[in-house]
Nucleic acid binder design. Sequence first.
DNA 1: CTCCGGATTCGT
DNA 2: CGAATCCGGAGT
Length: 216
Amino acid sequence: MRRLPRSFYNRDTIVVARELLGKYVVHQSRGVKRIGRIVEVEAYLGPHDLAAHSARGLTDRTKVMFGPPGHAYVYLIYGMYYCMNVVTEREGHASAVLLRALEPVKNVEGRTCGPGLLCKAMRIDKRLNAHDLLSDNFYIAWPDNESVGRVSPRAVIPSQSAARWESRSTGVKEGPPEANPLVIIERPRIGVDYARHWARRHLRFYIKGCPFVSRP
DNA sequence: CTCCGGATTCGT
DNA sequence: CGAATCCGGAGT
């Protein structure tokens, strides 16, 4: 699979967030390559965004957000779950995209709907904080064919749970809605009510109709 | 050093 | 709705 280049991440955070939908998170550890398809994300726009961790300034935890794009920002939440972000925009901008849900694709055990659960299932923890996503063992990639520009991603990488799409379709047997051009739903971010007016902005993006989204 | 609470999830 | 469970960040 073709990794996303640094230039992909070094762009407007909202653009990166939307374009991450449908891409593949790949994490290889101890010889096992786990793959999940990104179906839900949230954009955190920098220190002026009161919901972003970088709004507290440059600290030991947030220094990764202030670093160069294309790196993973992984942190512990509530003492028991990890959350994974992708750092975006130029160094010092301190913005990132939170991965909130994946569709299991390969070697993924357990649920992947929710930022804590997806990290657990993908075996992502603090050891991967600040990890370069242009590495060999941990990266985000295009579907094999999208780089070639032809068929549906589904034709190349069959999902572990493609059957669940069919079970949901009541009428004619058609492929998953995602086989068609992605329809992106925009909603307020989850769990950031402390951020006042920033909590109202529609900075959460997910694939319409996807059963793996944390909160439809 | 102490204290508060969190970009969550699960069980009651 | 509250517990679980650790640590970052702010204040003393």
